[in-house]
């Protein structure tokens, strides 16, 4: 599992992905960790197949008993089907996930972990002195969907928005935006169902100060590429399969 530190300040952001041992027939995912002095938050911790390499990778940054929070942007298996395993490994943890999906996510088993349902209008996650904002991103693509914004690190974790499906050796950041566009087009047109939802989200995100846009698949966007991505996404017609 490749680990890349993407922010270092009063706390850290680490991106995990490009797992070499991953079975070839499951989609590659990016996991993110926010690490404060005594606590650790896993964002979209991944599928059950990924649990062991992910846990092993996290142990380079935090002990098990300091993994206190999990976040699931939505209910997909590549996002959170490892929940049943985290549930058995962690003794004092919370899962922050859409309230709408609680009855669904509990199918993965969530007995010792406390399910903290995020209401439709969003909320926050307080991690010691760090306050992360939960930005509504409904219908992008899931009908109850949230992104995580860190105003201090200026990182926006965007789940499936900005994703591209690429090979295991793909760089972690977009290097040539124009060349990258074609890798994202079909994904966004096919998986995102609503132009209206897309416009509302873009308007919301344009009001945030974002240095890094961090999707759950593929490469992250930084600097001017964040604005380029928003402009490109704004112009894209989605929901094409009807």
């Amino acid at each position: 599992m490749k680990m890349t530190k993407i922010y270092e300040g009063s706390h850290q952001w680490i991106m995990f992905g490009r797992d070499e041992g991953k079975p070839g027939n499951i989609i590659d995912t990016n996991q993110y960790v926010v690490r404060t002095a005594n606590r650790c938050l896993l964002l979209d911790p991944g599928g059950a197949e990924l649990f062991a390499p992910m846990m092993a990778a996290v142990l380079h940054h935090a002990p098990v008993d300091q993994i206190t929070d999990l976040f699931a942007s939505h209910q997909d298996p590549d996002v959170i089907s490892s929940l049943g395993l985290w549930d058995q490994a962690l003794t004092n943890a919370k899962l922050h996930a859409p309230a709408f999906w609680e009855g669904f996510l509990r199918h993965y088993s969530c007995e010792s972990i406390e399910y903290v349902g995020i209401p439709d209008n969003g909320g926050t996650i307080k991690l010691e002195s760090v306050e992360l904002q939960l930005i509504p991103a409904h219908y992008l693509h899931s009908s109850a969907n949230f992104h995580v914004y860190d105003p201090q690190a200026k990182i926006l974790m965007t789940g499936d928005v900005g994703a591209a499906i690429e090979g295991p050796d793909t760089p972690v950041f977009v290097e040539n935006f124009s060349a990258h566009v074609e890798k994202m087009r079909h994904w966004h047109q096919r998986i995102m169902p609503s132009n209206q939802a897309k416009r509302v989200w873009i308007e919301r995100v344009r009001n945030l100060d974002v240095d890094i846009l961090a999707p759950q698949h593929g490469r992250m966007f930084k600097g001017d590429d964040v604005k380029r991505f928003l402009d490109w996404f704004d112009a894209l017609q989605v929901g094409i399969a009807v």
Binding site: F51, A52, P53, A56, L59, H60, H61
Partner: peptide, 13 residues
Amino acid sequence: FELASKMAGDAVY
């Protein structure tokens, strides 16, 4: 868990 422990190798934690 055993696999994770093995994969963690010499990780700090």
